[in-house]
């Protein structure tokens, strides 16, 4: 019998537990299926599973049978002025119907313009006009998918002179107006705060935690702007920075246990290193600061 016809016997529950999960990457498919590692959930980029068939769907189906799944979109362009791509919404709806993810999230960003897709998360000015447009788009997504979506705070490298809201207030207002949930990306908080000269501790302190349903953690690269000021790049290509772990502990202190994803998209490590990051997050989630300090000391 073909492997393609192997139907998983049953599916684990849809709900994402308040544990650490890991971004699912193709080089780790087999290892995960063979060893069934103890992680809370997996997350995939929706667009990577928009092919008609083939190995990505086969592996995801098998892994979904054993783990809860969250779905993270990177191409909906919620922050664009132009209308949402209805074909893309239909593709998302089909994927959600097929894999029944516990959470679906997208970004406060735009990535398409004039029929072209830039494959990057581009910043929006924080104005009333942008707020209205973003909220219209979120309403449309939640209505057409028939479920709540989460919006993620962005990493940014420039600010817009015309912005009239602080980012945290802007995001809080989006959630208040649309009822969407929030995805707090703690690495993005640190990257944006460094680049924009905001206080990261204050950002976490003022973030509307009542609406946060998930957390992302990732690594970043360090650069400098034209004046030699620190410029952090949201690169997802290395271990999570110590300061980001501190901010994460601060956020968990306010939120309580919350599903937390380790994102690593470039320069992939082997599974063990990725899993170790998830285990470190679980120490913080479970309030085991003593062991976390030990891990921290070992990590330098």
């Amino acid at each position: 019998m073909s492997v393609l016809q192997a139907v998983p016997p049953r599916r684990t529950c849809n709900e994402i537990p308040a544990r650490a999960g890991v971004g699912l990457k193709a080089p780790h498919y087999r290892r995960i299926l063979e060893t069934q590692p103890d992680v809370g959930f997996f997350e995939v980029h929706a667009e990577n599973y928009m092919g008609a068939g083939g190995p990505p769907h086969r592996y995801l189906t098998e892994i979904r049978a054993c783990y809860p799944l969250s779905l993270h979109g990177v191409g909906l362009s919620i922050g664009a002025d132009h209308p949402l791509d209805r074909d893309h919404l239909r593709r998302l709806a089909a994927l959600i119907g097929r894999y029944e993810p516990g959470l679906f999230s997208e970004h406060l960003a735009w990535s398409s313009h004039g029929g072209q897709f830039f494959n990057d998360l581009l910043p929006v000015p924080y104005t009333l006009k942008t707020l209205q447009r973003v909220c219209e788009h979120i309403d449309q997504v939640q209505e057409s998918l028939g479920r709540q979506m989460l919006i993620e705070n962005p990493s940014t490298y420039v600010a817009f002179a015309e912005s009239t809201y602080w980012e945290v207030d802007f995001i809080a207002e989006i959630s208040r107006r649309t009822g969407c949930g929030l995805l707090l990306d703690v690495n993005n908080v640190y990257v944006a705060c460094t680049n924009q000269h905001w206080e990261a501790v204050r950002y976490i302190d003022e973030f509307p935690m009542a609406h946060v349903r998930q957390i992302h953690l990732a690594g970043h690269a360090t650069d400098a702007d034209a004046h030699g000021r620190a410029l952090l790049i949201d690169s997802h290509d290395r271990l999570i920075d110590g300061i980001v772990w501190d901010l994460y502990a601060q956020a968990i202190g306010k939120l309580g246990p919350t599903p937390t994803l380790i994102e690593w998209d470039q320069n992939l490590p082997d599974w063990g290193e990725l899993h170790a990051e998830a285990q470190r997050a679980e120490l913080i989630l479970s309030g085991d600061r003593q062991n976390e300090e030990t891990v921290r000391a070992a990590a330098g």
Binding site: E47, N48, M50, G51, V74, G75, Q116
Partner: peptide
């Protein structure tokens, strides 16, 4: 440039 968000 890509014309679709489906980078596959």
């Amino acid at each position: 440039l890509p014309r679709s968000p489906v980078m596959l």
